[in-house]
Amino acid sequence: METIESLVGIVVDDIAFTVERGKIREFQRATSTCDPVHHDRAAAADAGYADVLATPTHVVVAGHYRDQSAFVSMLGLDIARIVVGSVTWEFGRPVVAGDELRGIRVVVADEVRQGRRGGLMRIVTLETPYCDATGTAVVTVREELIERGASS
């Protein structure tokens, strides 16, 4: 078995962006989501918020600010053998237009397991708390990346 150095604790990337109304609307349409709180400020006000609310998985837009092939090679993984196994979003509050979010993505687990079809799978878990201007985590995302064995 090849020896793999654990990646736990490595900062994968550090990004910052403003949550924009237009991007919320774009993402709402792309995910076929209907609730007017995502595009109508009056509906958002009725729900108790100062501006429109982002759809639940909105911080996926961080993809615009990241370099996928750079982080994959930085982690020593083979992009052709990687699939995303699971993703979790944990909310402190909804994401609101105007939020200034900063997301520092860190490796929190790095394990090798036996795959169901034989061969070894490497499972790398990344965690990103997206913090607002006060430093409070608004939403925390955990992604589990699976790298299938080279021979399977």
Binding site: T33, C34, P56, V60, V83, V84, S86, V87, T88, P94
Partner: peptide
């Protein structure tokens, strides 16, 4: 991309329950 179907599933759910009432959401592809 898995995030398309994850986003559609999450958006469908919060259209019903209200996005401000969602505390966590986990999906496996």
């Amino acid at each position: 991309m898995g995030q398309l179907q994850a986003g559609i599933l999450a958006g469908w759910l919060t259209d019903w329950c209200g996005v401000e009432h969602l505390r966590s959401f986990t999906v496996r592809f």
